[in-house]
């Protein structure tokens, strides 16, 4: 017979997440479809494995060390003071927090880094502008000189 139950739908069936009508249909289908019965067993095997999967514990000594560092930071931390972090670390960490919005209003600890970049860009733009203006002026002057010499050579 034709099998009209996808693997994903069968996964929803095993998880008990289909509506009543579809649950009955899949249930009836399982009576006649050996392939789906095998799939159901495989899904239940996976679910049992996931349920049994042990958590991976953190070694207690390491856990205490990390806890000590974190709590020391938390105690001295008025949120903007992050003494040990370099600008790059701070910016990287901030991007992780920003990505976690909208839970938290983003605090821009990287503001100084960003404003430094903005100043650099403004300086570069200014220098390029000066060079372009100077070049244009020079070209203009040469053109004027050529025009003058041409007009001097014209017969009166």
């Amino acid at each position: 017979m034709d099998c009209n139950v996808s693997y994903e739908e069968l996964a929803r069936f095993v998880a008990g997440e289909l509506d009543d009508e579809r649950t009955r249909e899949v249930f009836d289908h399982l009576r006649v479809c050996e392939s789906c019965r095998k799939r159901r067993i495989a899904l239940e095997t996976v679910d049992a494995g996931l349920a049994e999967m042990p958590r991976i514990p953190l070694a207690s000594r390491t856990g205490e060390e990390i806890k000590g560092k974190v709590l020391a930071h938390a105690q001295r931390s008025t949120p903007c003071e992050c003494g040990a972090a370099t600008a790059v670390e701070a910016e990287s960490k901030q991007s992780v927090i920003d990505k976690a919005a909208p839970f938290a209003k983003a605090k821009r600890r990287g503001r100084f880094v960003l404003s430094g970049e903005a100043v650099n860009i403004a300086l570069i733009v200014a220098m390029v502008s000066i060079i372009v203006i100077a070049a244009l002026r020079s070209v203009g002057e040469r053109a004027n000189g050529t025009m003058t010499s041409v007009s001097e050579n014209l017969p009166s």
């Binding site: 990390i66 560092k69 974190v70 927090i97 938290a104 209003k105």
Partner: peptide
């Protein structure tokens, strides 16, 4: 990741909603 996550939480606590 464990350490950095909690450091980030401490740093972002002021803005937490």
């Amino acid at each position: 990741v464990l350490q950095e996550s909690f450091l980030s939480v401490a740093d972002a606590a002021e803005g937490y909603e």
